[in-house]
Design a binder for these strands. Structure first.
Lengths: 199, 199, 199, 199
DNA sequence: CATGAATGAGTTTTCATTCAT
DNA sequence: CATGAATGAAAACTCATTCAT
C-alpha cells in the first residue's frame, strides 16, 4: 500500500529528531525509519540531508513568524507581551528536554560550510530581533532608536537564556532573563513616559 | 620514528579543531593527522574521543579561570573590567572565525548522553556566572543580592552575544551587549551610589 | 558498478572462510573481499558479523538436516547407515583441511556472549543427537531406552572423532571411532536379537 | 616497588583468561592488566602472544601428566580409575563455566598456522590417549591390542563429552559418556576374564 | 629486570548518497 | 512517486608489537 505525504512525514520526523537530538547526531536512516519512508523517497523529495535541514528551518521559521505576528497583534501592553514570549521559552524547554534554539544548535553543530542552512539561521535570527524591536516599540520605548536598543537587548537575553538553559538543563536562566527584562523595561518605560509627556 | 609528547600535541590539535570546526564534525583522524600521531597513541592517552573532549574543556576552563582571576585582581573599577571582558570576546570571535563559546557549541553538538562533557559544561558555566557576579560586586552593585542579579544578567548577555555573533558571523551582537551592559551599569551604579552615600 | 545477490555471495564467502579458518580469525574485510562486495552492502543485509555467523549456521543446519533425513530414509540397515555417516565425516575432514565441526569450532572461538550463535549451536547439536538416536532405533537397539543410550554414545564418539581429527590433523580418530561403533553395535544388536527373538 | 615473578604472574593470568575466555578473544592488554605487569615485561619474558600460549599449554600438560601419573599409581581397579577421571571432567566443567578442553578450544580458535601451539596440542592429545590406554590395560583389557582399542575409545568419548558439555553448557554429555564407558568396560572386562583365565 | 609511551595495520560499524527497477 | 539493494569513504576503536630509558 502506498502512503501519501511522504515529504511531509519526512519533514515532521526531521523536525522532531533534529530539535531533540541535533542535526549532526541524527542520520537519515533514523529519519526515514521514523517517517516510515523508503530511502530513495527521501532523495526524491530532498537533494540532501543538508537541504532537508534547511527546509525544516524554513518551515519552522514561517510558523515562528506566524506566532510572533499573532502575539504582536494580541491585546495587552508591549511589556506584557515580552514577558509572555519569555514564558513561552520555558514551556518549549520543558517540552523539548531542555534543547534550546534549533537554529543556534544546528549552527553550532555545523562546519560553517553549509550555506543553505546558515542562510536560514541568519534569516530567522534577524527576524527574531526585528520582532523584539517591534515589541519594544509597542508603548515601551520612547523612540525608534530606543526601541532598537531595547529590542536588541531582549533578543540577546532571549538567546542567552535559551543556550544556558540548555547547557545547565534548568529553567532558571529564563527566569533570570525575565528579571533582567523587568529592569530594562523599568528603565525604558520610564524614558517612554518622560519622553512622551514632557511640558 | 617516535616522537614524545603525543598527549600534549593531541590536546593542542583537539583544542584548535574542536573550537574552530566543532566536536561532532571533527574526527579523530583529523586530530591525529594534525597532531602527527598514530591512532593507537591517541587511545593510549585517552580512552575515547569523548574523554579527550572533556579533558580539553577541563584544561580550557583552568586557563579561563586564571584569566578571570587576573582580571578580577587587576586595577580599575568593576564596570571597566566588565567592559574589558566583553571586549575580549570580540577579539576571540575575530580570531576564531566567529566560533563562539566552545562549551555551548560542544553541548549543542551532543546527544545529551555524554556525562563527562556535560559535567565540564556545567562546571564552566557556573564558574563564569560566579565570575560576573564577583565583577558586579566590585564597586558596582549596592548589595550582594543586586550583584547576583546584575552578574547573572551579564552572564546571559555574554552568552547571548557569543552565540548570536556566531550565528550572524558578525561582531555587532557583542557591541549591542556592551550597550546593554552600559544601561544596566547605569541602573545598578546609580543604586550603588544612592545606597552608598545617603545622608 | 553494481552486482546483485550480494547477500548470497556474502553467505557463501562466510561459509567457506568460517569453516576453513574460524570465526574469530576471519574479519569482515576478508569476507567482503571474497564476496566482492562493498562493506556497507554487508551491513545492509546483516546487522553484525555475529548475526551473519548465526545465519550461516542456521542455513548449514538446514542442509545438514536434509542430508540426515535422506540417509534415514535410504536403504540399508541402521548399522550400515551409522557407519556411512562416520565415513562422511572423513570425506568432510579431508575436504576441509581437517577442520572439524563448524559448530563446535565457532563455539570454542567465542566469549560465551553471543546468544544468537550459541542458540544455533545448541539447536544443531540436539538435532544431531536426535538423528543418531533415530538411526540407533532402526533395527539396532532393542528398546527406545537402548536407542537413546546408543544414539547418545554415537553422538559423543562422532564429536570426539571430529575434534581429535582436527587437533591431530589425521583421519585415524574417525577410524578409531568407527571401530568403537562396531563394538557398540555388536553389543546392542546382540541385545536387540536377544531381546527380539528369545524363546 | 618491584614485584618478582613477573613471568609466573603472566603465565597464571594467561592460564585463567585463555581457559575461561579463549585464546583469540583475550588480548595481551588484558593479560598484563591481570598480571599487573608492564607491557615490555611481557615481551621480555615471551617473544609473542603465541609463544606465551604455547608455554601455558606446555606447563598445563606437565601438570596434567603429573595428575595422570598419580591416578595411574593410585589404588583401585582400572575401571574405577577411568570413571574417576571422567568425574574429574565434571568438576572441571562446573568450575570453568563449561569451558571444555583448553587444547581443543585453542586449536579451534586458530588458523592452523601456529606451529608452536599445534605442537603442544598434538603432544597433549597423544599423551592423553596413551594415558587412557594404560588405564585400559590395568586389569581391564585382555591384550595390548584390546587396551589400545578400549583406551582410544575412552579418549574419544572423553573429548566428545568435553566439547559437547561446552556446546550445550550442561553436564549431561559427561554422564552419558560415563554410561557408555560402562558398556565398553563390560565388554572388555568380560573379554579380559575370558582372555585371562581360559583353560 | 622493569617500564610505559609510541606505533602501523587491523578491527567492526555507520555515514550520506546513487542505482536499476 | 515509490522502492530497497548496493556503494565508497570515513567513523571510532583495538590489535600485537617495539622503542628509548
Amino acid at each position: 500500500m502506498k502512503k501519501p505525504n511522504a515529504r511531509q512525514r519526512l519533514l515532521d520526523a526531521a523536525a522532531d529528531l533534529f530539535t531533540e537530538r541535533g542535526y549532526g547526531v541524527v542520520g537519515i536512516n533514523q529519519i526515514i525509519d521514523k517517517a516510515d519512508t523508503a530511502k530513495a523517497s527521501f532523495y526524491h523529495h530532498f537533494p540532501s540531508k543538508e537541504c532537508l535541514c534547511a527546509t525544516w528551518l524554513e518551515d519552522a521559521h514561517d510558523r515562528a513568524e506566524a506566532r510572533q505576528m499573532e502575539l504582536l497583534e494580541s491585546d495587552g501592553s508591549g511589556g506584557e507581551k515580552i514577558l509572555r514570549y519569555f514564558e513561552l521559552l520555558k514551556t518549549w524547554l520543558t517540552t523539548k528536554d531542555f534543547r534550546g534554539c534549533p537554529y543556534s544548535n544546528t549552527a553550532a553543530s555545523l562546519d560553517n560550510e553549509s550555506k543553505a542552512i546558515q542562510e536560514q539561521v541568519v534569516l530567522h535570527k534577524n527576524s527574531l530581533r526585528t520582532f523584539f524591536i517591534e515589541l519594544a516599540g509597542q508603548d515601551v520605548a520612547g523612540s525608534e532608536e530606543e526601541a532598537r536598543k531595547l529590542g536588541t537587548s531582549l533578543f540577546l537575553l532571549y538567546s542567552g537564556a535559551a543556550i544556558e538553559a540548555q547547557n545547565l538543563r534548568s529553567e532558571w536562566p529564563v527566569d533570570a532573563a525575565i528579571e533582567c527584562v523587568g529592569d530594562l523595561l523599568d528603565r525604558y518605560e520610564g524614558a517612554a513616559v518622560v519622553g512622551g509627556c514632557g511640558p
